[in-house]
């Protein structure tokens, strides 16, 4: 009895928080089917014209989607290699300066994106001639490294290194040991972290704002630019598709390793 009373206040706040968190997302999904330019509630009908509008070439959302996809996929692929090797180094071995190395690996997290974006802008303007795709790719490759490294370190913290000794005693080479023993066991955790980093890069809008060029613009910047000229539910339609993408990702992550990965 007493317990129930104690947990009533947190319960009420939790319910309010859940409503608050879902409200703008639900509103977006609702707005995307609005038959009128001004979103009203209750809606005066149902329309799919805004979804058709996404694919209208004048909005450039499709090319923006392709650009963001390209950057996010390549940056994540590069960082899986860089991040996993770095995490293995600091997890597997004991050495002096280990904490400093970890701090260095995760340092991009503590620098404001806008400052890093601006620094890259100046560097690239000094060098000149580097296409926007590569500029944004380089920036994203740097800013998502810490997330992959931290996640892999957390995954490796639960890994039993004696398994490697066992494999070695059964005459497996270090390469074989990694490929056949270590990697299969840590793969789900790494994939979940990679998915998170992919989304971070895909949705990133600060480096994108400063480093894109008229020829190469990522999706979040396309959406922000569109907002400045018109505020119709095409924005809601494209946003709904992005929300669906995130929902799919979170279900995938839950299946891969469960959601407790976020509680560390």
């Amino acid at each position: 009895m007493r317990e129930d009373r104690v947990s009533l206040f947190p319960k009420i706040i939790t319910i309010l928080v859940l409503i608050f968190l879902m409200a703008p997302l639900l509103v977006i999904v609702l707005a995307s089917f609005s038959p009128t330019v001004l979103v009203v509630f209750p809606p005066k009908g149902f329309s799919l014209e805004w979804y058709a509008n996404i694919f209208d070439s004048s909005t450039n959302f499709v090319s923006g989607f392709g650009n963001s996809m390209k950057v996010a996929l390549i940056a994540t692929a590069i960082d899986i290699v860089l991040g996993v090797t770095a995490a293995l180094a600091v997890s597997r071995y004991k050495f002096r300066g280990k904490n400093m190395l970890i701090a260095f690996f995760t340092s991009p997290m503590y620098v404001p994106s806008i400052a890093f974006a601006f620094v890259l802008l100046r560097i690239f303007s000094m060098i000149g001639g580097i296409p926007a795709f590569l500029r944004i790719l380089l920036g994203h490759t740097v800013i998502i490294i810490p997330y992959i490294i931290r996640n892999t370190i957390a995954v490796l913290a639960g890994y039993n290194w004696l398994l490697e000794d066992a494999a070695a005693s059964l005459t497996a080479s270090p390469y074989q040991t990694f490929m056949k023993v270590t990697l299969p066991l840590i793969k789900p955790g790494i994939l979940a972290g990679a998915l998170l980093s992919f989304l971070y890069s895909f949705d990133e809008a600060v480096l994108g704002s400063l480093l894109s060029s008229p020829k190469f613009i990522t999706l979040p910047i396309r959406i922000m630019n569109y907002m400045e000229f018109s505020f119709d539910p095409t924005l809601a339609a494209i946003s709904t598709l992005l929300i669906l993408m995130s929902l799919t990702s979170i279900v995938l992550m839950e299946r891969l390793i469960g959601l407790d990965m976020f509680l560390k």
Binding site: L25, P220, F231
Partner: peptide, 26 residues
């Protein structure tokens, strides 16, 4: 609990641009 966790984590994975847009509509 798992459903609640998903509701809390889900916005976390949605672009800040999209979420701000939602608030603009509201």
């Amino acid at each position: 609990k798992n459903t609640m966790m998903i509701i809390i984590l889900f916005p976390f994975l949605v672009s800040a641009v999209v979420r701000s847009y939602g608030w603009m509509v509201i």
